[in-house]
């Protein structure tokens, strides 16, 4: 077990070193992030006519901080490793060589991906904090201690998301192009939990959304940072663990089926 873990840690570390060189390129992404947040600040400034208003229980500051945090996760966890690379490995036949290595392909990809966002996400977190504090002022009622509980939620959320996206990429065993399915998944997460909190939707829909991974990926962690409560934290952590287990099972299942199909039909 410890040897297993060591293997993936080494993969993780080498990707980390490799990506340090690209810090400049990562920082380029700040442009897109900055503008995205800027647009939302303007938008909410326009919609909140009176600074004292509450929309769906959120003050203007909370609403903007919420978007900045979800977008931070969105940008910080973005990578083509779990999407395009997996698809092209499978479609291009490269998978045959990667499969025969003494590691599990999907876990190898996850370790690699973790190495990527370990640099990206903190960089974006720093930017988000600086931008938030200077452009909208500090978050009302925020206690830094709560980060100890909400940061693990963010990390779990990113991982759950990665596992689901990986599942979609693994569909490439059967279909030529899995990208369109990624778009739809992304848009669900984006529209129903990233752009605004789900409280903004009608009640019945809210309940429905809470059953989907949307709840654990973006909404949950961001909500915890903006408006922390211990019960909510426990609830989100639990759901995330459930989704992680379910996602991993699904991932191994799809991968197993795909590999079997490869053995039967050839590359």
């Amino acid at each position: 077990m410890s040897r297993m873990l060591k293997k993936y840690t080494v993969i993780y570390k080498s990707v980390l070193i490799e990506n340090l060189q690209y810090m400049f390129n990562i920082a380029m992404g700040f442009i897109s992030y900055f503008i995205m947040c800027f647009v939302f600040i303007k938008l909410w400034n326009y919609i909140y006519a009176d600074p004292g208003d509450l929309i769906a229980g959120y003050t203007k500051e909370q609403m903007i901080w919420y978007v900045m945090i979800t977008e931070m996760v969105w940008f910080g966890a973005r990578s083509s490793t779990i999407t395009r690379q997996v698809s092209s490995d499978i479609r291009g036949g490269n998978i045959a060589y990667l499969m025969n290595k003494p590691y599990h392909y999907t876990l190898y990809i996850l370790a690699k991906y973790t190495g990527e966002w370990s640099i990206q996400l903190p960089m974006y977190a720093l930017l988000a904090t600086v931008m938030g504090v200077t452009m909208i002022g500090s978050l009302p009622g925020f206690r830094p201690v709560t980060l100890l509980a909400s940061v693990p939620c963010v990390i779990l959320g990113v991982t759950v998301n990665a596992v689901f996206k990986l599942c979609i990429s693994l569909l490439s065993f059967w279909i030529e192009d899995s990208a369109p399915f990624q778009w739809i998944y992304d848009k669900l997460i984006l529209v129903m939990g990233t752009l605004f909190p789900i409280e903004i939707f009608p009640g019945a829909l809210q309940f429905l959304f809470k059953l989907t991974p949307i709840y654990t990926v973006c909404y949950g962690p961001a909500k915890l940072i903006v408006d922390f409560s211990a019960e909510k934290c426990a609830e989100i952590l639990l759901t995330q663990l459930l989704y992680l287990c379910a996602g991993l099972l699904l991932m191994f299942f799809i991968y197993g089926k795909g590999v079997r199909k490869l053995y039967v039909n050839g590359g």
């Binding site: 192009d177 990208a179 369109p180 399915f181 778009w183 739809i184 848009k187 669900l188 984006l190 529209v191 129903m192």
Partner: peptide, 15 residues
């Protein structure tokens, strides 16, 4: 699928 899903993708923003 590429064409159709892209239209759906854009349509999501109507929400």
């Amino acid at each position: 699928t590429n064409i159709l899903f892209m239209m759906l993708n854009n349509g999501a923003f109507i929400i």
